[in-house]
Simulated assay, not measured.
Amino acid sequence: MKYIDRILAAWQSIVAALDALQPLAALAARAYVAQAFFLSGLTKIRDWDTTLALFTDEYHVPLLPPQLAAVMGTGGELVLPVLLILGLGGRFAALGLSVVNVVAVLSLPEIAPAALQQHVFWGSLLAGIAVFGPGKWSLERVVWPRITAGLRPA
């Protein structure tokens, strides 16, 4: 019995250590994805004429005119990562970037396997953030309780 108790105690220590790493892991996931999308948005606004040409000739965004798709995609890539990294509206930002991510994959007629794998990885991280939230190290944890406290009836 003592052997099983030692194994269970060791497992509980491992679980406690992993639980302590959750805020850091959530922040790292948010930072990684935010950086990828934000840098893509910066690239688009640096040369807007090329961006419009790409959305007109290369990217085939369903249901949207190329100019509107370019503005929406670039705007999403610049605004949503800031929200994501701050953890402010983290689930909203993760879901919004998921849409940008899926549209990016669907709008390219041919996508290299490595690029597709990168989009799948980003999508997986975004799904985790959307499901589990931005984590303890987020502005949402500070701001949201204050907002909801003001909405409660007195």
Rank of each mutant, 00 (worst) to 15 (best):
M1A: 13
K2C: 08
K2Q: 15
Y3F: 14
R6F: 11
R6K: 15
I7L: 15
Q12R: 13
I14H: 07
V15W: 06
V15N: 09
L18M: 12
L18I: 14
A20I: 04
A20D: 08
A25Q: 06
A28C: 05
A29P: 04
A29E: 09
A31W: 01
Y32K: 04
Y32L: 15
A36W: 05
F37N: 01
F38A: 09
F38N: 04
L39Q: 14
S40N: 06
G41Y: 09
T43Y: 08
T43W: 06
K44R: 13
I45Y: 00
T51S: 04
D57I: 07
Y59P: 02
H60V: 03
H60S: 02
V61T: 13
P65S: 06
P65H: 04
P66S: 00
L68G: 01
A69H: 03
A70W: 00
G73K: 00
T74Q: 05
G75T: 01
L78M: 08
V79L: 09
P81E: 06
L84C: 10
I85L: 12
L86R: 00
L86W: 01
L88I: 05
L88C: 06
G89S: 08
R91K: 11
F92I: 14
F92N: 02
G96E: 04
S98Y: 01
V100I: 11
N101W: 02
V102T: 09
A104E: 00
I111A: 13
A114Q: 13
A115N: 14
A115F: 09
A115S: 15
L116F: 13
L116W: 09
V120D: 03
F121P: 07
G123L: 10
L125I: 07
A127V: 14
F132V: 02
P134F: 04
G135E: 03
G135A: 06
G135M: 05
K136H: 09
K136R: 13
S138F: 08
E140Q: 14
V142F: 12
T148E: 14
L151C: 13
P153E: 12
A154Y: 09
A154K: 14
A154W: 11
